[in-house]
Simulated assay, not measured.
Amino acid sequence: MDARDILDSYYRYANAGDWDRWCDLFADDMVMDEQLAGHIEGAATLRSMMSGMGEMYASFQNNPRHFLVDGEQAAVVSRIVAESAAGEPIEAQVMNYFRITDGKITYMSNYHDTAPFGVLK
């Protein structure tokens, strides 16, 4: 898969709630700087963390708006529309940055307004 295929899969799997296949897109030694969850290292840590996603949200959609792919680097502007497990609406604009090496995401960071996610506390 090329970088664009990986990114398309990233959003397709997230929107389907297929967190196992979503985690498969990451390299074993991946690093993520996630604005809410913090610094994450290793695919095993990520997989364990993502196992609870279905319990945090009644619904979750991360809809990509713009893609910019330049070799092994990419940026995606997207919009999250979700509902917390308690039924609170969540909407946020997002910017994700990716590094993709040998068909796997090796680094990812995201940036968004954290205020809408306060309902998860």
Score class of each variant (00 low, 15 high):
residue 2 D to M: 11
residue 2 D to K: 13
residue 3 A to Y: 01
residue 5 D to T: 00
residue 6 I to F: 02
residue 6 I to R: 01
residue 7 L to W: 10
residue 7 L to N: 11
residue 8 D to T: 07
residue 8 D to F: 09
residue 9 S to F: 06
residue 9 S to C: 02
residue 10 Y to A: 11
residue 12 R to F: 00
residue 14 A to V: 01
residue 16 A to S: 02
residue 16 A to P: 11
residue 16 A to C: 07
residue 17 G to N: 05
residue 18 D to H: 07
residue 19 W to K: 02
residue 20 D to V: 13
residue 21 R to V: 00
residue 23 C to R: 03
residue 23 C to W: 02
residue 23 C to M: 07
residue 23 C to Q: 06
residue 24 D to V: 05
residue 24 D to T: 13
residue 26 F to C: 09
residue 26 F to R: 06
residue 27 A to P: 11
residue 27 A to F: 05
residue 30 M to F: 05
residue 31 V to L: 12
residue 31 V to P: 03
residue 31 V to D: 03
residue 32 M to K: 13
residue 32 M to N: 02
residue 33 D to N: 06
residue 35 Q to P: 14
residue 36 L to N: 04
residue 37 A to Y: 12
residue 37 A to P: 15
residue 38 G to E: 15
residue 39 H to W: 14
residue 39 H to P: 15
residue 39 H to F: 15
residue 40 I to E: 04
residue 40 I to L: 12
residue 40 I to M: 08
residue 40 I to P: 12
residue 41 E to V: 15
residue 41 E to L: 14
residue 41 E to I: 14
residue 42 G to C: 11
residue 42 G to Q: 08
residue 42 G to L: 09
residue 43 A to T: 06
residue 46 L to D: 06
residue 47 R to Q: 02
residue 49 M to D: 15
residue 50 M to L: 12
residue 50 M to T: 14
residue 51 S to R: 05
residue 53 M to N: 11
residue 54 G to C: 04
residue 54 G to I: 03
residue 57 Y to G: 11
residue 58 A to V: 08
residue 59 S to C: 10
residue 60 F to A: 13
residue 60 F to N: 11
residue 61 Q to G: 14
residue 64 P to R: 01
residue 65 R to M: 08
residue 70 D to W: 03
residue 70 D to Y: 00
residue 70 D to R: 08
residue 70 D to T: 13
residue 70 D to C: 11
residue 71 G to I: 04
residue 71 G to N: 00
residue 72 E to A: 03
residue 73 Q to W: 12
residue 74 A to Q: 07
residue 75 A to L: 07
residue 75 A to P: 10
residue 75 A to T: 11
residue 75 A to D: 10
residue 76 V to Q: 06
residue 76 V to F: 00
residue 77 V to L: 13
residue 78 S to F: 01
residue 78 S to P: 08
residue 79 R to S: 07
residue 81 V to Q: 12
residue 82 A to V: 01
residue 83 E to P: 09
residue 83 E to H: 09
residue 83 E to Y: 03
residue 83 E to D: 08
residue 84 S to P: 13
residue 85 A to D: 06
residue 86 A to K: 08
residue 89 P to D: 06
residue 90 I to K: 04
residue 90 I to W: 02
residue 90 I to E: 12
residue 90 I to V: 14
residue 91 E to Q: 00
residue 93 Q to C: 03
residue 94 V to L: 09
residue 95 M to L: 13
residue 96 N to M: 07
residue 98 F to C: 04
residue 99 R to A: 14
residue 99 R to C: 10
residue 99 R to T: 12
residue 100 I to H: 01
residue 102 D to E: 14
residue 102 D to S: 15
residue 103 G to C: 05
residue 103 G to L: 05
residue 104 K to H: 12
residue 105 I to A: 05
residue 105 I to V: 00
residue 106 T to E: 08
residue 107 Y to Q: 04
residue 108 M to E: 13
residue 109 S to A: 15
residue 109 S to G: 13
residue 110 N to G: 14
residue 111 Y to D: 08
residue 111 Y to T: 10
residue 111 Y to H: 06
residue 111 Y to Q: 13
residue 111 Y to M: 04
residue 112 H to L: 15
residue 114 T to N: 02
residue 115 A to D: 04
residue 115 A to H: 04
residue 115 A to K: 07
residue 116 P to S: 01
residue 116 P to I: 03
residue 116 P to H: 06
residue 116 P to A: 07
residue 116 P to M: 03
residue 117 F to K: 04
residue 117 F to E: 12
residue 117 F to A: 10
residue 118 G to P: 09
residue 119 V to W: 00
residue 120 L to A: 09
residue 120 L to M: 12
